[in-house]
Design a protein around this nucleic acid. Structure first.
Lengths: 76, 76
DNA sequence: ACTCAATGTCTAGAAAACATAACATAACGC
DNA sequence: GCGTTATGTTATGTTTTCTAGACATTGAGT
């Protein structure tokens, strides 16, 4: 069965943006570094607003930083 | 000052999709009709996952149903 | 070896997103 | 009129996101 789940490319985008730190990204969008870490790790799905702000920081469209994935049966 | 806030076109998309009801949209994405009503009314910002599911129902990209608006000084 | 910055991770609690149920109203067909 | 269906709205409660603090680890620089 095809399962849908969220994934993101925040980590790579941070490093492409001059090694931006989790803490710095957090304060730029108004959340704590723990929240950024949890979002990066996929521990929970952020609010749309937070997602838009993150995309804005990197100057990318939202769907380029967050993917509503069609994962195969392989992943648990 | 330029304020950023969320807006959406769910209402018009619902009617363009054959007068789809709030209740039907809700059960298609797994939330209640009250939640759909609140999201439509902008009373709170949905989770990214819910947003992706809504866009999926209408077959539209997420940014076409939700806008991270640059509103002018006019709106409160 | 020592410091320090960045991240991982855990906890307790606040805040926001959600559920469920109730009641109200307006529009429709009968 | 009557019944039904869609929506608005309010209240109460649960779940999830997020905060704030702490402590551990790892790596880069000195």
């Amino acid at each position: 069965m095809a399962e849908r789940r969220l994934s993101n490319t925040i980590r790579t985008l941070r490093f492409m943006a001059g090694e931006m730190t989790q803490a710095e990204l957090g304060e730029r969008i108004g959340v704590t570094r723990q929240t950024i870490a949890a979002i990066e790790a996929g521990k929970y799905s952020p609010t749309l607003e937070a997602a838009f702000r993150i995309a804005e920081v990197f100057g990318k469209p939202l769907e380029e930083v967050f993917q509503w994935g069609i994962s195969s049966t392989l992943d648990k």
